[in-house]
Design a protein around this nucleic acid. Sequence first.
DNA 1: GCCAACGTTGGC
DNA 2: GCCAACGTTGGC
Length: 153
Amino acid sequence: MPRRYWLMKTEPDVYSIDDLERDGVTCWEGVRNYQARNNMMAMSVGDEVLIYHSNAKPPGVVGIARVVREAYPDHFQFDPGSRYFDPKSDPENPRWYMVDVAFVKKFDRVVGLPEIKADPELADIQLVRHGRLSVQEVKPAEFRRIKKLARKK
DNA sequence: GCCAACGTTGGC
DNA sequence: GCCAACGTTGGC
């Protein structure tokens, strides 16, 4: 099974790449969109993940993480005190899953969304074409390209 | 703060 | 199963 590549969004005010660096490993809870969930369920240990800061100035890719635990039920869906509580989810058949990811690196500079949009090699990236999805698959060439852009300047 | 895009809900 | 209403995302 070849390694796959992903992009996951987070709002830095809520959980940033610096928080991930501090924590080392974190569970990626709170994904409440079926397509995003399905992407998490397709992840394997060892897959690499671009970390994207949304609602940030500037929005963009800020670093890399690695999947260290494959999808398992997100227990926050059963916690009435959690903002991620889902009263419609059945504990016998959980609706929402999460993965664990580990910090790999923080880029020396943010690869901003305008730069990604302007790059011909990234013209088909889902981030541009289906902007709102919070967990996306990234093609190997796109992953390499963003890593390369992060080294520029 | 605005609003376009788009996913979800629920009446019928 | 359609689709209008509604809620959320997220760039600007």
